[in-house]
């Protein structure tokens, strides 16, 4: 394990990382959110979904630095007396859970289909890629919105909607790399050595097409957080009992123009922050892992 750590510290990737300010900022933001969704609930004072802990008298408190703010609620409270900071911590968990799970699901499905399409070609390839093309010709928020109105709301339905728009990018990336790799002679060599196709795909093709996926997957988590926020804001996302960051914005939106801006604005800032951090990290990885940009 230490040998592996030493190899990482000596690697070109780490060397360039240390000299890249935006990569460091991006990874710090991502680390911050990772900490927030893992230990956050034990740090904040209140569970915003435990009605017993809510104090209706504390409703609509402004952030602590404003007139009437209370040190108990740093970022203020909403109409039910829920701590905005605590809501954000719990909401980030839901947003990121959805973003990560949908990314993993899309990655598994898209990679499998891309490998099959690229390796076998022919009719299978045409069918998979035409479906992907159709999928791509609609904006993903629109497709997801359409699916959600058909399915109804719910976390698992958001996941289904996100995965059905998200697999395409993996399928296309993997198919492209698979086509390139199968031209190489080591795949031919694996075939002439009598290896069955399933083993060739898993042992020889898959590991060689994974690198570009790291970039796609990273950036996609950010995209998914945004799409989920849009869906929830439009009222077709997660249920009210499990508010994500997007739903928090919607909840405060009604009173936004009455001067009670903090209920919407802070969740919005956190969405911006997480997507910003993920994209910084994704850009760094893209520059590092894409041989064409070197």
């Amino acid at each position: 394990m230490t040998a592996l750590a030493q190899r990482f510290l000596a690697s070109e990737l780490f060397h360039n990382y240390r000299r890249n300010a935006s990569a460091i900022i991006g990874s710090l933001i991502v680390l911050f959110f990772a900490g927030m969704i893992t230990i956050g609930p034990w740090v904040v004072a209140q569970d915003p979904y435990d009605v017993a802990q809510l104090e209706l008298l504390d409703s609509f408190k402004p952030p602590v630095w404003l007139e009437g703010g209370s040190p108990q609620y740093w970022l203020g409270t909403d109409g039910q007396g829920r701590d905005v900071l605590a809501s954000i911590v719990y909401g980030s968990r839901i947003s990121l859970f959805i973003g990560l799970t949908a990314m993993i699901g899309s990655c598994l499905i898209g990679t499998t289909l891309g490998l099959l399409a690229g390796f076998y070609g022919g009719r299978l390839d045409s069918v998979i890629m035409r479906i992907a093309d159709i999928q791509l010709s609609f904006p993903s928020v629109l497709t997801a919105l359409f699916l959600m109105s058909a399915f109804g709301t719910g976390v698992e339905k958001v996941l289904i909607a996100l995965i059905s728009v998200g697999w395409v990018v993996y399928a296309r990336t993997v198919r492209g790399s698979t086509l390139r790799e199968t031209q190489k002679e080591y795949i031919q060599a694996a075939r002439v050595s009598g290896l069955p196709n399933a083993k060739i795909i898993l042992r020889h093709v898959l590991p060689n097409v994974l690198t570009p996926l790291i970039v796609v997957a990273t950036i996609q988590v950010g995209t998914f957080v945004l799409i989920e926020a849009s869906l929830s804001f439009l009222g077709v996302g997660v249920p009210i009992t499990k508010p994500s960051l997007g739903l928090l914005i919607k909840n405060g939106f009604d009173v936004l123009f009455s001067g009670l801006w903090w209920i919407s604005v802070f969740p919005g800032l956190f969405i911006m922050l997480i997507v910003f951090g993920i994209n910084l990290l994704g850009d760094f990885l893209r520059d590092e892992l894409n041989p064409r940009l070197k």
Binding site: K184, L195, H204, N208
Partner: peptide
């Protein structure tokens, strides 16, 4: 046929740069 390939008949190719899996 898979039991023939590699075991009874083997084949090698032109380009030694890509003939081995880099990983």
């Amino acid at each position: 046929m898979r039991r023939v390939r590699g075991k009874r008949v083997a084949m090698i190719f032109q380009d030694p740069m890509t003939a081995l899996n880099p990983l």
